[in-house]
Amino acid sequence: MRMDKSYSQSFEITGNNFVDAGKAATEVKMILKQIGINSDIIRRVAIASYEAEMNVVMYAKRASMNIEISQEKIKIVVADEGPGIQNIELAMKEGYSTATTEMREMGFGAGMGLPNIKRNADHLKIESEVGKGTKVEFVIELIKHRAESIEQ
């Protein structure tokens, strides 16, 4: 796949569908591999996307995940219809969670989702309206990392 211009794709994620959970992030990973993005970056984008996808599956009704890849950056926007986040600052704390037993049985809901997205992204923006939904937007810079790998 050539990367002369930007590339974008959208995925639908359905809430409470634990069987398909992880498919969008898997697709994202395959796309980045096909384009030939650096493997460390792929891992970071995949982990952040997967956490964002699991948040939708666990808490929201549905969401769209949009990935936009340009020469400079990879931007992912996950906009859901769901309960929204009451307190974003609290939700960003490692270990804070409102998860149910079912979510925990899947190995998630340990209060690491948003912190894990933040850890892997260069920029993270969360907008949420209680009773309506949440928009999580994160960016991973490509130029910065290219410069760093040249320095090494």
């Binding site: 069987v19 959970a21 992880g22 982990i47 049985e105 190995g107 998630f108 340990a110 690491m112 894990n116």
Partner: peptide
Amino acid sequence: DLMSDVLAFSRSGALLLTGLVNTQT
């Protein structure tokens, strides 16, 4: 058994020991 911990702390090329047996693993 916490997949978020695996995502946060593992490295590429690792072996995972776990008691969590499902598709999310």
